[in-house]
Amino acid sequence: MASVWRRYGATASLAAALGLGENGLVVFGYLLRLLRVVLLLSLWRSLFAGRGEVGGLALTEVLTYTLLSAAFAAQIDARTNLDEAIWNGTVISRLLRPVPLFGDFLAEMGGRWAFGLITFTAPLFVFAPLLGVSVAPRSPAAGGLFVISLLLAIAVGTALDFLFGSLIVWVDQSLWAVQYARAGMIVVLSGALIPLPLFPWGIGTVLSWLPFASMASAPLLIYVGGGGALPLLAGQAGWAVFLWWAATRVWNLSLPRMVSYGG
């Protein structure tokens, strides 16, 4: 057991080192993300001007929500490289590794995150006051529950990721079309871009029942105190258990069907 964890650790370390890339151009990506955050903060300030709470959220809470969403963007839309590995054929060599497949992909994902957490998330927290945003949680308890909720969000996100990977095996279709559709829809359905309570006509209430809301909306609302923490956590736990059960079963059915072309 200990040796498996050692192997996961080695995989994560390698992935973290790869994060630096060839010559630090990764910083360019972070600057682009920062620019987007600044624009979204401006958007909320403009929309909330002269208003009190909207959908039960005050401006300060929405600003914190937005900054947090950007800081933990990778975690609230957790993705392994399973789909790409299936597409380009490298999943074959993954299957030969002496570690469980899911664990291997998760370790790699964790390693990639380590680099981003240090080079983007942490600085964004430190410099948030310069953007006029408070990053303090609603209460110490909310901060603690956020950590649990974020872990559940990652569990839901990775389960969906493995389900998407299985989907590629079954439909034998373009990886990119599926990925684009998924990225475009999840950012909205999960509440990562716009807090669900701000949608009109009760749409946010409907969306909050979907698994995507467990990925972003739940942890972010818990952090800013915009929703009941226990119901949100219960919903996340329920989705995590169900989706992991489904992901494991679907993957086991998909594996014998898999054909990789590579190249």
Binding site: G55, W176, A177, A181, A183, G184, V188, L189, L193, F199
Partner: peptide, 30 residues
């Protein structure tokens, strides 16, 4: 294949577009 490509491309953009329009509805414009 045809449906996957066409629907995939459309969905990739539809989410953000719908979100902006819904936001405009909520706040009477942007």
């Amino acid at each position: 294949q045809f449906v996957t490509y066409i629907v995939g491309d459309l969905l990739a953009r539809a989410g953000t577009i719908a979100a902006v329009l819904l936001l405009a509805e909520r706040f009477d414009g942007i």
